[in-house]
Design a protein around this nucleic acid. Sequence first.
DNA 1: AGCCAGGGAGTCG
DNA 2: CGACTCCATGGC
Length: 281
Amino acid sequence: MENWEAIEGGVRRKDTGPLDLRQCFFCGQAFRFSAFETEYRGVVGGKAVVLLQQGDNLVIMGAALEDAPFWERYLALDEDYAAMQAALCRNPVLRRAVAHAPGLRVLRQPFFEMLITFILSQNNHIPRITGMVERLCQTFGEEKEIGVFLFPTPQRLAEAAPEAFAPVRAGYRVKAIQSAAQMVAQGILTEEILQALPTPEAKALLCTVYGVGPKVAECVLLFGLGRQEVAPMDVWMQRAMARYFPKGFPRYLKGCEGIAQQYLFHYIRTCPAARKEGKRA
DNA sequence: AGCCAGGGAGTCG
DNA sequence: CGACTCCATGGC
């Protein structure tokens, strides 16, 4: 943690390497940050913070030096993205995807937040997922500061009456949220249990939750449990993979398939030319 | 006005 | 297994 230093009201991290907060927060992996000019305000793991970049440095307002390990891990600053991107760039499509968002990193977010968030994502789109997560926090989360709500605890979501979810406007997903929250609250499904399991078994356990299928489980594994080899396959990605990688990812991407896929996902969703190209796959 | 969204459960063959 | 349908809601 020698790269971190305390400043007035927050902390600073030197020499982050490839990092662009906008690309990290708005590529469909995180849903609790908002952009204000050059700042990004959000709530993660019980902490409300403001992030901004100054050249190759990162400033986190509202964080203390003792929180540095948390943010180091959250932003994956302990990963060598320069080296990883070099590997991705051996493939022509991924080279374009990396060039399109060279500051994209796959975040390591809190397990329970990812479980509930990606349950909400089913048959849904990113702008609305963001709204539903925010309303879920407003309805069931602790108000940390005025207007700033923490992500709800498993207990709170498990105990709530189903009718109490009306303001969230989550539709039929409420049943799934509550069954997942109940399993976590009961200790049947916890981060400790999942982390002790090999990836296929962890995925199988996640899929026993009502409302959690292969896609949601893969997102939880990648974004919430740090399993970087897991590549979440939605309809778009299946098409894109069939087109660009009919034989799967090449061997030299072993271990970072999920990260590779997140670059590809962001690329084909936000680059008009790539989107058009992907449609006729 | 419709179309469709980072899906999954239920049903039927 | 694979192909279907329905689900609740609202960005665009």
